[in-house]
Nucleic acid binder design. Structure first.
Length: 620
DNA sequence: GTAGGGTTAG
């Protein structure tokens, strides 16, 4: 039996070239299929040039169609210069030609350069089509350039292209990516999404990731459920999974994350390295370091992929250890990575240094910081300086920290650097540096209420109530409100959230009773409320009362009430701000009195409370 | 030929 084989790339090419030689004279159009074929097979630049020379030799000038095909080949071969030159020589450029040029730029040039080609197309009076807009909109999304995106949107409407699924998905994505820039942009994305006559998996994923990336985790998760309910119309793929997992990570919704992991496994999507990386991060941020490590190991264990040499899984796992305050483990993993032959990048060092700082490994951290440039040729950036300032600051070495800041001449001293210094000043009661850092921060990020609170804390510590008052009126003047403390915990896959002083929960009464009882037990065991964490200039009793309503205490009490002993091994609580010192002490006591392991994720890191101690070693 | 994705600091 004879099998008919598909012609190979070479066979197909040589037969086309044969045709070229046999036919004289030729029309430029005869060349078009060859250029097209070369583009499809990712032909080399030298082949393109040979063919081009062939054409010139015969005195043939490419028409708009052939030029478009040639431009496409040059563009996809990274030769943007020739592509641009060629496009300028064409007497009557077409939309097709410019689309080819735009595509090439979108592959190898910056978004701004790509947008410039789009602009040139329009200045030639050529109407962009359903191929041009997705490219241009993607650039706006990458640049978070909402005004241009909106203008492109209105053009899409004018050309009647908004119903096209590619254009529509691009618009949804553009608005979602600009959500950070302008209030209401994500809502606009959702409106467009709802109005689209046809949605495919890319449209759904764009909207889900839009929610995820804008911190709207609940919306992301519920949209993912909506999509599954749509049935066979759309099938989630690995990109969808990767887009929804950060939403679980954000909410610390471990059970939901596990369900999505199971789902991905059932659908055969868990083998994808990118999915596994997202899983590492999801498990780590949900407080399950063991599962995170398991996923990480499974990535390295794969024989048939190259992800062993991929930096990102290592970075993800190093970051996981770092956020859990396991600096030594992060450092060991870093050394393993180097032994494997993977080169670290700036993200690696950010995580590694923060890991050292969270575990008090000052000397190791300084050593790694030094090695960045000298050994690994990675230039330190503001975030690395912030970590080093934090490293020294947490160790109380404030003068050295300030010295580091003073010596930062190439890198701009950003808010994170001053922020590190300010929190160290709060811990070690340093008024001079604290005021210095805070005053910089009030200019650099005037909206961040946390900075005002920290300086207030320092003033309160020194009994400077006049200054506290002044700062309060400044806050009022600027219309800044202290972000309310919020803590939440997941019980049976449902998230229960509590705000500071919250009494709205159905179990609020029981929570209060339990907290009163705990208070008595703890005082009997020697607990003294640390009222330094209350800002107000009020009596000690009132301060104590104010501490009792902190959101993390409410969430812990709720967890204790609903977690029947033996069934819930670990109580996991997440807080939107930094945990206060009094609540930290409270959690340590509870972990001892109730023999209950508690893991609290605050805005910076994890705290594992077990038998009266915390993994951070009171070093946060 | 066009659209969606993973890792980072106070």
């Amino acid at each position: 039996m004879v099998f008919l084989k598909q012609p190979t790339k070479e066979q197909e090419l040589s037969s086309l070239l044969q045709t070229l030689h046999e036919h004289h004279p030729l029309h430029p159009r005869h060349y078009a299929p060859i250029f097209q074929l070369l583009t499809r097979f990712r032909g080399s630049l030298s082949q393109a040039k040979q063919l081009h020379a062939h054409l010139t030799l015969r005195g043939l000038r490419p028409d708009a169609f052939l030029a478009a095909k040639m431009v496409a080949l040059y563009s996809s071969s990274r030769d943007r210069r020739t592509a641009t030159l060629l496009s300028r020589q064409v007497p009557c450029p077409s939309t097709l030609l410019f689309n080819a040029l735009i595509r090439g730029h979108s592959l190898f040039a910056s978004p701004l350069e790509t947008l410039d080609v789009f602009r040139q197309m329009q200045s030639h009076g050529l109407p962009p089509d359903h191929f041009s807009f997705p490219f241009a909109l993607k650039c706006c999304a990458e640049l978070q350039f909402l005004p241009l995106g909106q203008s492109l949107h209105s053009q899409c409407l004018r050309f009647g292209l908004e119903k096209d699924v590619y254009v529509g998905s691009s618009l949804v994505n553009m608005y979602a990516k600009c959500g950070y820039m302008k209030f209401g942009a994500v809502e606009m994305a959702k409106e467009l999404f709802d109005d689209m006559p046809k949605r495919n998996i890319v449209t759904w994923t764009a909207m889900i990731s839009g929610y995820s990336q804008n911190g709207m985790a609940d919306s992301a998760l519920s949209l993912f459920e909506d999509m599954k309910r749509e049935g066979s119309q759309v099938q989630p793929n690995w990109v969808t999974i990767v887009s929804v997992l950060p939403a679980c990570a954000h909410s610390a919704a471990l059970e939901q994350g596990q369900r999505i992991h199971d789902y991905a496994t059932a659908m055969g999507m868990d083998a994808h390295p990118t999915v596994r990386i997202a899983l590492v991060t999801m498990y780590a941020k949900c407080g399950n370091l063991v599962a995170a490590r398991r996923c990480f190991t499974s990535i390295l264990g794969e024989d048939d992929n190259n992800s062993k040499n991929d930096l990102v899984p290592w970075n993800a796992m190093i970051a996981a250890y770092a956020s859990h305050g396991l600096g030594a483990e992060a450092a060991t993993l870093f050394e393993d990575m180097i032994k494997t032959g993977v080169r670290p990048d700036s993200v690696t060092f950010t995580s590694l240094l923060s890991g050292c700082s969270h575990s008090g490994l000052v000397e190791d951290g300084l050593k790694y910081f030094d090695s960045m440039r000298t050994v690994y040729s990675v230039e330190p950036q503001a975030e690395h300086y912030a970590c080093v300032v934090d490293l020294l600051g947490r160790a109380g070495r404030l003068d050295e920290a300030v010295g580091i800041i003073e010596r930062m001449n190439v890198v701009e001293v950003g808010p994170s650097v001053w922020g590190s210094l300010l929190s160290a000043c709060r811990t070690f009661r340093n008024l001079e540096y604290g005021e210095m850092a805070a005053n910089r921060l009030f200019v650099l990020e005037p909206e961040n209420s946390g900075n005002y609170v920290l300086l207030c804390n320092i003033y309160a510590d020194f009994g400077k109530w006049e200054e506290v008052k002044k700062l309060r009126s400044l806050l009022k003047e600027r219309g800044i409100r202290k972000s309310p403390g919020c803590s939440w915990t997941e019980i049976n896959g449902k998230i229960h959230a509590f705000f500071e002083g919250d009494k709205s929960h159905p179990q609020s009464r029981q929570i209060q009773i339990l907290l009163e009882d705990l208070d008595k037990k703890m005082k009997a065991a020697g607990y003294v409320p640390d009222t330094r964490y209350v800002l107000h200039d009020i009596s000690e009793e009132e301060k104590e009362c104010s501490l009792k309503t902190h959101s993390e205490k409410l969430a812990i009490a709720f967890g204790l009430l609903n977690a029947s002993p033996g069934t819930v091994r670990v109580l996991r609580v997440t807080k939107n701000l930094r945990i206060c010192g009094d609540c930290h002490m409270f959690a340590k006591f509870i972990s001892n009195i109730y023999s209950q392991e508690i893991i609290i994720r605050d805005v910076n890191r994890f705290h594992h409370f077990k038998t009266g101690t915390c993994s951070c070693g009171d070093h946060w």
